[in-house]
């Protein structure tokens, strides 16, 4: 299936969960990332159970401190 992940379209195997995608994409600080699927936040407890489908748009939002 085709997914848009962080603005880039790529092909992925069918039946991928959010948790698996986080692994494949080598997401930084995976325990503390916010995920949105099609402009809705995916609750962190649901990463293992949320199955992605063709055409889904996924964004990873990271904590960023900095400033000083």
């Amino acid at each position: 299936m085709r997914l848009t992940v962080a603005g880039t379209q790529k092909d992925y195997e069918d039946g991928l969960t959010v948790a698996k995608l986080i692994e494949i994409e080598n997401v930084e600080t995976p325990a503390y990332v916010t995920v949105s699927v099609n402009d809705e936040f995916a609750a962190s407890g649901t990463f293992e159970t949320t199955v992605l489908k063709d055409g889904d748009i996924i964004e990873f939002l990271y904590f960023m401190g900095g400033g000083q």
Partner: peptide, 26 residues
Amino acid sequence: RCVFKEPPPPDAVPTCRQAGVIGAMG
């Protein structure tokens, strides 16, 4: 807080002092 529910534990996410930051980014 809508986006990031609560602070991560201390040291879970790198700070500028640990990871660095390019000055012009500020």
